[in-house]
Nucleic acid binder design. Structure first.
Length: 182
DNA sequence: CGCCAGATTGACT
DNA sequence: GTCAATCTGGCGG
């Protein structure tokens, strides 16, 4: 695979699909890249199961809970390296009613504009930890949706991280109303 | 085994 | 603006 920052850029505009009673999906509009132990904000730093999955097969889900929320990551890194992409926000496409039901709110714009919200809307939890996202067998996968031009993408520093690297590792689609707010 | 911190959210003062 | 909920791994006793 490739560098997490490259993959983070390429994930924008892709579709996260969750099969519940029917297709429920949303388009990725915001991502962040995380590296291995050299990244002070990375969970791989702490070792344990998270680090193993992050260093393992690419294209699998890495689920991890913080402050009572589940965060969805996709493992991606160069050979013999460690890294993952955090899916921070997405735009509801299919099955919006299901997401509203899962989230318990009526406002579509605040349905999936944050990592924890997104996970709840798509009923994602620890069960998906370590499962591949390139097959449909587990009811959660990523597929092509549309191309996003370079002029539509903005880079910035990561959000919510106490110790960030001096590199812009957050990518989001310019002007998209579903990008998480600061 | 208890306590702490962290890639968050939302309810309450 | 403040604060607690909820989960995992590191660290100290």
């Amino acid at each position: 695979m490739r560098d997490p920052a490259i993959v983070a850029r390429e994930l924008l505009g892709k579709l996260v699909v969750r099969f519940l009673s029917r297709r429920v999906s949303c388009m990725i509009v915001e991502t962040e890249a995380y590296y291995g132990p050299e990244d002070p904000a990375s969970r791989a730093r702490r070792g344990g199961d998270l680090a193993k999955v992050m260093a393992g097969d690419v294209g699998v889900a890495l689920i991890f809970g913080v402050h009572g929320n589940w965060l969805l990551n996709v493992v991606a890194h160069e050979p013999d390296n460690v890294g993952a992409i955090l899916i921070r926000a997405c735009e509801p496409i299919e099955g919006i009613k299901v997401m509203i039901k899962n989230r318990g709110v009526n406002d579509v714009k605040s349905l999936t504009n944050g990592p924890g919200k997104l996970s709840r809307a798509l009923a994602i939890d620890k069960r998906f930890h370590g499962l591949p996202l390139y097959t449909r067998e587990h009811g959660l996968w990523i597929e092509y949706f549309k191309d996003v031009g370079n002029d539509e993408i903005v880079r910035s520093y990561r959000v919510g991280v106490s110790k960030d690297l001096p590199v812009k590792l957050r990518f989001y689609i310019k002007g998209n109303p579903y990008v998480s707010k600061k």
